[in-house]
């Protein structure tokens, strides 16, 4: 199955370029035209990235994350999940690299086929870096009032936590 994943991107690029060539598109000129727009777009998201990543690394270095998790520990115990899952649930919406490093440490500590290892795997793959996506997409457009974006996205993340625990307990 690993091969399928590795093949997806080259195949898609191949199809796009071949289709363009068959339709008489000047493929290289068109590529350059599109790529030029990327320069501006990625510099527009730089301030957003700095603001968000600095805040996340401050939360982790200051011990605030551990504090929040220890506050939520009784909840985890009541739900019958190991408290080590909680930092992952809190980290997942804000930091992609942070949460995947934490998932790796959970898999090593508990074993990938243990219940905690499975819950961590499911949770980490079923949601995205919520705040990063929101800040990058809307930051680039310059919107300040985001209406119900954040609550809707965070409810989705909560649902993912609940379902990750439920599915692993019921199926796995």
């Amino acid at each position: 199955m690993g091969q399928i994943g590795a093949a997806a991107m080259p195949l898609i690029i191949g199809i796009i370029v071949l289709f363009g060539f068959l339709k008489n598109v000047e493929v290289f000129d068109t590529f350059l035209e599109g790529a030029k727009e990327g320069i501006h777009a990625s510099f527009r998201v730089l301030p957003t990235l700095i603001g968000l990543i600095v805040a996340v690394s401050m939360v982790r270095a200051s011990g605030l994350l551990e504090l929040l998790c220890s506050l939520a520990e009784p909840l985890a115990e009541a739900a019958g999940i190991s408290p080590e899952i909680l930092p992952l649930a809190l980290l997942r919406p804000v930091s992609g690299s942070g949460s995947s490093a934490y998932t790796l440490s959970l898999l090593q500590q508990f074993g990938p086929d243990s219940e905690t290892g499975k819950i961590a795997s499911v949770l980490a793959s079923s949601t995205e870096t919520t705040f990063y996506a929101i800040a990058v997409y809307f930051g680039a457009c310059g919107y300040k009032k985001l209406r119900y974006t954040v609550p809707a996205a965070l409810l989705g993340d909560c649902a993912a936590l609940v379902f990750a625990v439920l599915t692993v307990k019921l199926i796995g």
Binding site: G20, V25, L32, E33, A35
Partner: peptide, 21 residues
């Protein structure tokens, strides 16, 4: 953001081809 700059330019380039074709 430098990493993003590379993938952004590459994918917006391919997107343009896909749109024109």
């Amino acid at each position: 953001s430098f990493f993003l700059l590379g993938s952004m330019c590459a994918w917006l380039g391919f997107l343009k081809i896909a749109e024109k074709s």
